[in-house]
Design a protein around this nucleic acid. Sequence first.
DNA 1: CACCAACCATACATTGACGAATGTAAAAGT
DNA 2: ACTTTTACATTCGTCAATGTATGGTTGGTG
Lengths: 205, 205
Amino acid sequence: MARKTKAEAAATREALLDAAEEVFLEKGVARTSLEQIARHAGMTRGAVYWHFKNKADLFQAMLNRVRMPFQELVEEIGGPSLADAPLEAIRLACVSGFARLERPRYRRVHAILIHHCEVFGDIDPLAMQNEMAEESCGALRDYLESAARLGQLREDLSPELAARLLQSMLGGLFHDWLRNHEQFSILEQGNLLVENQLGLFRRQA
Amino acid sequence: MARKTKAEAAATREALLDAAEEVFLEKGVARTSLEQIARHAGMTRGAVYWHFKNKADLFQAMLNRVRMPFQELVEEIGGPSLADAPLEAIRLACVSGFARLERPRYRRVHAILIHHCEVFGDIDPLAMQNEMAEESCGALRDYLESAARLGQLREDLSPELAARLLQSMLGGLFHDWLRNHEQFSILEQGNLLVENQLGLFRRQA
DNA sequence: CACCAACCATACATTGACGAATGTAAAAGT
DNA sequence: ACTTTTACATTCGTCAATGTATGGTTGGTG
C-alpha cells in the first residue's frame, strides 16, 4: 500500500479507534476480532497492527481518548463558589459530569468499560472502576465535610455516611444509564436525583 | 470410563458447575475454556459435553442454581407486618437480600453475571440486569406509594422519586460490593445505608 | 533528485478452542 | 447372567483469531 501523509495516517488511526468503539459496544470486546474492526473502518488488519501492538494496546488507546480526571470537572464549574456552598459545588460537578457522558464518545467508551468487557490481557476494568469510585468518593467526602463544618448538613447525618449514600446513588444511576441510555436522559434524571438527594441532606427541610 | 450411580453423576454435575463458578470468576467467562473448567473439577471435557450441550448451556445451568425471585424475599420477612409499616418491610426485604448475597454461591454468580461476562451466545446479561432492575424498582415503588398513603413519607418527596433514589443507591452498593467483596460487608454496609436512606425519606426527622 | 522509511495490504504460520466421533467399563434393567 | 444404557475419557478434524513476515507504493527529507 502506498504511504500516506502524516495527517492521513493520524486520521486512519482515529478511524480505527472509532470503529473499535462501535464494534466493541455492539458485540462485546471478547467477541470482536481485529479483522472486524479493520473492515468496519474500511481497512485491513495490517493497518491495525501498524498503529497498535495488539488488541490490548488498541483498547488502551481507546480509553486514553476519554480520560477525564475529577479535577477537570471541578475546574469547569467556575471557582470560588465552592468555598461557601460545597453542596452546590457537588451538584454542579455532577451536572458537568453528566453533560460529558452524553457526548457519544464518552458514553460509548464507559459503557464498553463497564458492561462490555472482561479482564483481558494486562487490562483490568474492575481495577479501573475501583480507582474511579475511590477518587469520586474521596472528593465527595471532602466537600461534605466542608458542608458539615459550615452547618449546612443535618446534624444526625455524618459526612462520611452522606458521601457513601451519594456515591452509591451516583454509581447506580451511572450503571443503569449506561446499560441502556435510550431509556432516559442522564442529564435530566441525574439532575433530579442529585438535587433531591442533596436536599434530603440539607439541614431544615 | 466407568459408569457412576445416579447420585455420583449428579455430584459430578454439581462439581462441574462449582468449578465453572470459580474459574469464570477468576478469569472471566470468555477467557476460560471448557477444558479448564473440566480440569479444575478433576475431569475432562467429555464430562462437560455429557452433562451440558455447550458453554452457553453450562452457563445457563449455573445461573439457574441461584434464581431468587423478589417474591421469595418478601415471604422470608414474615407476613402481615408489611401492611402498616411498608418502610420497615422494605428494610427487611433488603436485609434478606443482603444475607443471601453473602452466601458464596450467590455472590460468585452475580459477580460473574455483572462484572465478568459479556454478551455471549444467546445469553444477554444486560437484559437480565434490566429485568432485575425493573422488577425491584417496581416493587419498591409499590411499597413507597403505600407508605405515602399512610402519611409516613415526607410531603415534599414523591414515592416515584423516592423509589428511583433508593433503587439507584441499592444498585450502586450492589455493584461496588460485587466488584470486591473483601472491602466491606454488604450486610453491615447495606443495613447502614438503607436504614439511613429510609430515615431521610420518613416524615419528621 | 534520490533514497529511505512510513504506511498499509497480503500471505503465511501458529495457536488453541470447539464439537463430534469413538472407546469403554460399570450400573440398570430383565 | 445377559443385554443395554449410562457416564464419562480420548482422539481428531475444523476453523477462527492471532501474530509475523513480506511486499509495494509514495511522502518526506537530505
